Amino acid sequence: MNPRYLISSGVLALAGTVSACGAAHTARGDVDAPPAVYKGIKTEALDDDLVNVFVEIEGGRGPQDVEVYAECAVSRYVLDKDYGFARHLRTNVTEEGGLWRGDAVYTISPTLPRGLMTIDAEVVAEACAQNGIPMV
């Protein structure tokens, strides 16, 4: 398989939500999930090619919405830095009183990085914009 066509699981989930909105929710048993309210993004450069992304969501479907929101945030960050790609390293998700918090770390690069959890920033940013998920 050509590594240029690898995308992250969050983007696949986002695409699945777009293509089968009702069916995607029903299949996971989260039909009653309240709509996600995006509360904010904070990015922190850890090094020239390493970024920490913090996001908060109220409601939504939980960890999967947090992960997609973080991918949207890192995509905007990558594009603002004139890079094209990111690679997911880890995401920690916590919930307290209906507020979900994500703490994700990514490497960023101008070329497609090695590994399976890669993100094409332009593709992800477009999907986020089409789905109304903020990137700043």
Score class of each variant (00 low, 15 high):
residue 89 L to Y: 08
residue 8 S to L: 06
residue 37 V to N: 12
residue 25 H to L: 09
residue 110 P to W: 06
residue 98 G to Q: 13
residue 70 A to F: 06
residue 53 V to Y: 10
residue 105 V to E: 13
residue 2 N to S: 03
residue 7 I to A: 04
residue 38 Y to T: 08
residue 112 L to S: 03
residue 15 A to G: 00
residue 44 E to P: 06
residue 103 D to K: 15
residue 60 G to F: 08
residue 35 P to V: 12
residue 74 V to E: 03
residue 69 Y to Q: 12
residue 9 S to W: 04
residue 101 R to C: 06
residue 4 R to W: 00
residue 107 T to Q: 15
residue 68 V to P: 11
residue 27 A to M: 08
residue 31 V to I: 14
residue 13 A to G: 11
residue 25 H to I: 00
residue 74 V to Y: 12
residue 39 K to Y: 00
residue 132 G to W: 10
residue 130 Q to V: 07
residue 75 S to I: 05
residue 86 A to H: 09
residue 76 R to T: 04
residue 128 C to S: 05
residue 127 A to D: 01
residue 90 R to D: 03
residue 96 E to K: 14
residue 126 E to F: 15
residue 69 Y to N: 11
residue 40 G to W: 14
residue 15 A to Q: 03
residue 40 G to I: 09
residue 31 V to A: 12
residue 46 L to P: 11
residue 27 A to P: 02
residue 78 V to G: 08
residue 132 G to T: 04
residue 104 A to Q: 04
residue 6 L to Q: 10
residue 24 A to H: 14
residue 101 R to F: 02
residue 13 A to K: 15
residue 76 R to I: 03
residue 92 N to M: 03
residue 105 V to S: 07
residue 81 K to I: 00
residue 124 V to A: 03
residue 127 A to E: 00
residue 12 L to W: 15
residue 101 R to T: 10
residue 95 E to L: 12
residue 47 D to P: 12
residue 23 A to I: 02
residue 75 S to R: 14
residue 79 L to D: 07
residue 124 V to T: 10
residue 136 V to A: 14
residue 132 G to R: 15
residue 66 V to A: 09
residue 86 A to W: 07
residue 77 Y to A: 00
residue 83 Y to M: 14
residue 90 R to K: 13
residue 125 A to E: 04
residue 26 T to E: 01
residue 57 I to G: 09
residue 72 C to D: 00
residue 28 R to E: 00
residue 50 L to T: 06
residue 31 V to D: 11
residue 43 T to K: 06
residue 64 Q to R: 13
residue 127 A to V: 01
residue 76 R to V: 02
residue 93 V to S: 06
residue 22 G to T: 08
residue 79 L to V: 11
residue 87 R to A: 00
residue 123 V to S: 09
residue 20 A to C: 04
residue 85 F to L: 04
residue 28 R to I: 02
residue 24 A to Q: 13
residue 10 G to H: 08
residue 66 V to N: 04
residue 16 G to D: 09
residue 75 S to V: 05
residue 107 T to G: 09
residue 120 D to L: 01
residue 31 V to Y: 14
residue 53 V to Q: 07
residue 131 N to S: 14
residue 20 A to F: 11
residue 99 L to Y: 08
residue 135 M to Y: 10
residue 5 Y to V: 00
residue 2 N to Q: 03
residue 91 T to K: 11
residue 77 Y to H: 15
residue 36 A to T: 05
residue 78 V to F: 13
residue 92 N to I: 02
